[in-house]
Design a protein around this nucleic acid. Structure first.
Lengths: 342, 342
DNA sequence: ATGAAAGCGCTAACAA
DNA sequence: TTGTTAGCGCTTTCAT
């Protein structure tokens, strides 16, 4: 069952069938109709491999992510896939699991399948792997960090804005002891978030002791460990910002395990605004960065290497994990003589 | 840069290069070494499309899921992919978004890419689509529901066990008014869960009024609506079981919005045990069904059509969203004269 | 053990 | 507008 079968059934040449399938305008509508009918009747499905082989176009786009289990990535993938399908492409997903060897496998697979572009949405990539991609002239797109090579574009995320808003928000509430649970250092976007935090804090004249910066790993476990560390300090922070929502969720868990209530005893802010955050109890205040936007930008960038992708913004979404610091409340209580506020 | 280039560089024929790549044992080790060196030096990558075209084997397995945004599915995909890579296959993911048209597109894509098997991990599939797959002799695997055709296998999930345990657990705590927020009716696995609930409840001689059965849709929103409905009843339930964890999470949210505390005022049990459930506040009591197990089973079933896949079990994981019903507590309080228990 | 050559199913250049 | 035909890069007989 191939294109010849259809050609024969419709009484035309294979070239005509090919033209019909590819919607080449020059074909006689009557003939086209006949061909479509044969296709329908025979249940013919063109063989993508053959098409790709001869045309040199795989119609395949790769995305490399680190951990499909972090809800941020499915959202991103969904956005990527939606956009890709929209422009007639398919998506090859590679999940590295933060493992270098798997990353290598991913790249190899992408190469073998002759993808027409790959979006690297993970902690950097080894130089040699990158070169292999680059040497095949495959367009690439990165988040934040962009090795300066042609064919490589970067989606810049304005971490500053959202993080600045968050720090302001905390400062206005009266917090002076702000901590930060960061992501893995090798992950550029994590480093950028930490930097943004540092500069935002600087700006309002606050000093953050190094012990208030905990190096996590963007997992719930990292968040838990971060809180354990922070709580063990002689003077714990009154507010914690996290490098991503998964970390914040882990933090909530550890905080609650420690018998602390959020936001009464301690304020918490996440980053990403994954869908589940809104449904945490209490709903998580976080900084929104749209995975879908990033993904859509990525697809566009891969297909049109000439126009640089537009930046992605971040912004604070205030929900219910932030309030005035415990001390303030205690003072208020004493002053007003009420046993319980609220 | 193709197989000929390598052949030339190594001073052998293309056939030999092909044999080396495919590890055909008959090749002279010395020659093989030379070929590998050339491959290395040239950075040659075999073209999958060409290989697939000539060999008729795409080394591609498809998974169709309904909603990549529901954390259960990424976990499943991860399991599928891990297993697939292990046996030398790649994964083509199709997300239908509960949309029939997208389901059709998915099937079409799978057909075009000549997948060697597809796992349908979503609410059924339209008969004609199934026939298209079947007519190409593509092995399929389903969860629960198995259209009786050859080449189609089924992974049976023992919903009974876990749900039975859950109902028992609730009954032992003293709950008599059990409600259920189900999933979409067209989704067979959802219907099976509801049935298991009904039979488990029957077994302990409880009667569940129809108003206690809310038809949700496996999303957080569905869970919220379910709770809204249940709370509006003149005699609301004291415990709610949900057809999946996302529903339970939505329910937690709505309950908390209504000012009810979990599990003091109402007990809640989910289904799936997605990773985030453990991190909810309070941690969600739920019924575990391993997506990874299902996925691994699915891959095995697709590659070996003769051996039927083994069943997947479910089991209750007690965390902190269940306790004695509010009434009981109130009685206890009165009797003991304490203002607050705990 | 190795090589020569015939396609796999399709597209695209060229001819008619 | 339609048809003929030469490959795309590879695997796999069939010879050697």
């Amino acid at each position: 069952m191939d294109i010849r079968t259809v050609a024969h059934a419709a009484g035309v040449s294979v070239a005509t069938v090919s033209r019909v399938i590819n919607k080449v305008p020059s074909v006689d509508p009557a003939l086209a109709k006949k061909v479509w009918e044969s296709i329908q009747k025979l249940g013919y499905v063109p063989n993508t491999q053959a098409r790709a082989l001869v045309s040199g176009r795989s119609k395949l786009l790769g995305v490399i992510i680190s951990d499909i289990t972090n809800p941020f990535f499915p959202e991103l993938i969904q956005g990527f896939e939606d956009k890709a399908v929209e422009v007639g492409y398919e998506t090859l997903i590679g999940s590295t699991n933060y493992d270098l060897q798997r990353m290598e496998q991913c790249v190899q697979r992408m190469l073998e399948r002759k993808v027409e572009g790959v979006a690297v949405m993970t902690f950097g990539i080894e130089e040699p792997l990158l070169d292999r991609l680059a040497s095949q002239g495959i367009p690439m797109v990165f988040i934040d960090l962009a090795p300066k090579k042609k064919g490589i574009s970067t989606i810049r995320v304005d971490y500053q804005k959202g993080i600045h808003e968050a720090v302001q928000h905390l400062a206005v509430l009266g917090h002076r002891r702000l901590a930060f649970i960061s992501g893995p250092d090798r992950l550029h976007s994590a480093v950028a978030r930490l930097q943004a935090f540092r500069s935002a804090v600087d700006e309002i004249g606050l000093r953050v002791p190094e012990s208030y910066i905990f190096h996590g790993d963007h997992t719930v476990e990292g968040g838990e460990r971060g809180v354990d560390h922070l709580l063990a300090l002689s003077k714990p922070p009154t507010a914690i910002m996290c490098s991503n929502d998964m970390t914040a969720i882990g933090a909530m868990h550890a905080l609650s395990r420690a018998g602390l209530s959020i936001p009464k005893d301690i304020s918490l802010i996440g980053f990403d605004d994954i869908r589940i955050s809104e449904y945490m109890l209490p709903p998580l205040t976080t900084i929104r960065m749209s995975g879908r936007d990033i993904a859509a930008s990525a697809v566009t960038a891969l297909l049109d290497t000439s126009t640089p992708p537009r930046d992605v913004e971040t912004k604070l979404v205030v929900r219910q994990t932030t309030s005035v610091p415990a001390g303030t409340l205690a003072d208020l209580r004493k002053k007003s003589g009420k046993a319980r506020s609220r």
